[in-house]
Amino acid sequence: MRTSTDHGSRLALVSNRLPKHEIAGLAGTSLKHQHLPAILADDAPGGFFEVHAENYMGAGGPPHAALARIREDFPVSLHGVCMSIGGPQALDKAHLARFKALVERYEPALVSEHLAWSTHETTYYNDLLPLPYTEATVARVADHIDQVQEAIGRQLLLENPSTYVTFPQSTISETAFIRELVKRTGCGLLLDVNNVFVSATNQGYSALAYLSDFPLADVGEVHLAGHAEQQDDEGELLLIDSHDGPVADAVWKLYELVIARAGPIPTLIEWDSAIPDWPVLKREATAAQAILDRHARAASRENIRASA
């Protein structure tokens, strides 16, 4: 199995047929087609846009026309939701080929997928399901990540899940499991701060302790989103990673801590249902950008003092 030491030498360089737009330190939003006219008319629309890969696996049509227009002027992040990297069966070769074709077509600044599974034999679930954290699962998931990275010729960012159940078979903590995947494959990480808060609330552990143990140095992108509050069968609070509202105050506080520790990582606002008008979504990204900029300035001042 590939390790992080030889990962870089085995990945092909991106061809750079398209304009190269820097994404470092930027806040962005999910690209929604209904927002395209407002985005193009906006003098300062924001930093970058992220799309779900599966929405663009057809050959052409309006979705590709919109994405091609955005790609001319902005960095794009490609986010997969159906690779089923955590599943027990082999990766779908046709799906992986379509994913690879999208990476080659749009040369995204970032490419990501989920630490989850969503298929069983010929059944496809409309959800991102958790997996047991065991040595056997580490080996299987690492092999799947290797296959994806080999196919696309570049690093994949792996996203931590939101969870509602856990497995008694698990023998490894989620953060240790993720660290081992990075070590074995050289993949990067997508830290979804809302997922951390949702999972910690549902499972009864500390979100701060989780983040303290998370390998922040390997994070290449951050996700922020809204969640919904429900009750479980016992009447206890249950959070759902719903992406249907603004980022909660508690998640903003966790995000501030992450950026203070790790620096200005590209940050994406996810809002995938009950989608608001463009100014509302942009306002969330502007709030994230303010945090990124503030910590970037603080780091710059610290560097100046250190070199004086």
Rank of each mutant, 00 (worst) to 15 (best):
Y124L: 12
C187N: 05
D127R: 00
L13D: 14
A306F: 00
R297A: 03
K93L: 14
H64M: 04
A90T: 07
L238E: 02
Q231I: 13
P161G: 03
I172H: 10
H79N: 09
E221T: 01
I70T: 09
K20W: 14
G87W: 15
E54I: 05
E302Y: 03
M1G: 14
A260K: 06
L239G: 08
A151F: 05
L281E: 03
I39H: 10
A217N: 09
D92K: 13
A306G: 11
H79P: 11
Q34H: 08
K20H: 15
D127L: 00
D244E: 15
I172D: 01
S242P: 02
M57D: 10
M57K: 09
R261I: 00
D192F: 02
A27I: 03
V193P: 05
E150Y: 05
H243C: 03
V280M: 14
W117M: 13
D218Y: 12
A209H: 05
S212N: 14
A225G: 01
I304V: 12
S170N: 07
L239M: 05
S9V: 14
G220C: 06
W252F: 07
V138P: 06
I172A: 11
N194H: 07
S15Y: 05
P215S: 14
V51I: 15
A262Q: 08
L129A: 04
V111F: 08
S112E: 15
V111M: 04
E113K: 15
E159F: 01
Y255I: 03
C187K: 10
S9Y: 09
A248F: 03
S30R: 07
Y255A: 00
Q203W: 09
E236T: 09
A299D: 15
T29S: 10
T3C: 09
V14Y: 11
T122C: 01
Q89V: 07
T163N: 11
D241F: 06
E150C: 05
A225M: 00
E50L: 11
N194L: 02
D249Y: 02
L31H: 00
Q89F: 08
F99C: 12
A38G: 11
R184F: 03
A27M: 02
A151V: 12
L268Q: 06
H64E: 08
A41M: 00
V165W: 05
S206C: 10
E221L: 10
G204L: 13
A66P: 00
I85D: 06
G220N: 06
Q149R: 09
H295T: 06
A308S: 14
A209Y: 07
G153H: 12
A274C: 11
Y133R: 15
A59K: 06
G25Q: 12
Y106C: 08
S242T: 13
Y210P: 06
D293T: 13
T137A: 06
Q203P: 13
